[in-house]
Simulated scan of single mutants.
Amino acid sequence: MFKKVFLAVLLLSALAGPLTAQTLKLATYNIRYDNKQDTANAWLRRLPHLAGLIKFQDFDLLGTQEVLRNQLLDLAGALPGYAHVGVGRDDGKEAGEYAPIFYKKAKFELLKQGTFWLSPTPAVPSKGWDAALPRICTWGQFRDRSTGFVFYFFNTHFDHIGVVARRESAKLILAKVQALAGTGAAVLSGDFNVDQRNESYDLVNASGRLKDAYATAALVYAPSGTFNDFDTKTKSDARIDHIFLSPAFTVARYGILTDTYGGGKTPSDHYPVAIEVRYARPK
């Protein structure tokens, strides 16, 4: 009798295994470039608190923006459990801001990676349309070592001036997601420099391919917009930092993390957006 029950349990476990939900903690964070005029909010003052927040939240993957080379090295040193992908936007090597993706190196295997420019010539360093600056999207294809789940993570920073550039950047990224990921699982994070009422946001959110995590989360914690300008008294519902997801993911929780330190200072002039997602374990 015991043997029959044991075999039945094993059979049920085997059948249930492919449907077991797995959880990932993802985030996007504009860390504010190392501006020497930021005396009270200088990078080296902010670094321990920013890195501490990331480690405490225990993100599995994190898209970051406005990261200069020295900041990339500082973060890599402060986050020893993470590896990263990305290049500088000015030359495709080390110059200018990066949009790097940090990921837990013990948890994920990096399969492929790349960066493209948000311009009509995306394969080479370039400035697109009416943009004020060169803009990029960095991506990686990852495999969860424990489940075999494969997904793409795209991370970007849209231009702060060019209206046409933001619109065309949204179209370009959607085309790249389709070309690289096909119908597979995909995440798009970034500072889009537009809120949820803008046409560039709508192009992505209404694409049928990707959906804002905010719109689908079972639990939402959003006490503020995502840009704070180093002023905690700034209150808005404008979310300019977003995480979009393909239907492979179910969003359990969404949060805008308004952590402060030192009597009201913020680790960056943006608040990070953090989400917890679930996906069906592959067969």
Rank of each mutant, 00 (worst) to 15 (best):
F149M: 09
N35E: 11
P247E: 09
H84Y: 14
L53H: 00
R209T: 14
Q65N: 11
N155S: 05
G190K: 03
R239C: 04
K93N: 08
T39Y: 08
F153H: 15
L219Q: 14
D229M: 01
I173E: 06
T258Y: 01
R239G: 04
R278I: 04
T115M: 01
K36W: 02
T260W: 00
A95L: 11
L53A: 09
G225L: 12
Y152N: 09
L257W: 15
S207Y: 13
Y98G: 07
L118Q: 11
V85L: 11
A132V: 10
G148P: 06
R166H: 05
Y98S: 01
N30A: 13
L174P: 08
L50N: 00
F244A: 13
T138H: 04
L203N: 05
F230W: 07
L111I: 15
N193F: 10
E168P: 00
L203A: 04
F149D: 06
K112D: 10
K36Q: 15
P18I: 09
R278Y: 11
Y261V: 04
L118R: 07
W139E: 12
E97S: 05
K176W: 13
D229Y: 10
N41R: 05
A165P: 10
D130W: 04
Q178W: 03
K112Q: 14
N205K: 08
V194P: 00
A51Q: 08
A27C: 05
D212A: 15
L26W: 01
N228W: 08
A181V: 12
Q57Y: 11
S13R: 04
D60S: 05
N193S: 10
A217F: 03
G255N: 03
H270T: 08
A14F: 15
R239A: 03
D90W: 06
R167V: 09
G88D: 10
S126W: 01
G208M: 11
L15S: 04
P120A: 08
G77K: 05
A206G: 05
E66I: 15
F56M: 08
W139D: 02
V204G: 11
L11W: 02
G77F: 00
L11F: 14
A218V: 13
T20N: 04
K107S: 04
D195V: 09
R46T: 09
A123H: 13
T260D: 03
V194F: 09
S126V: 02
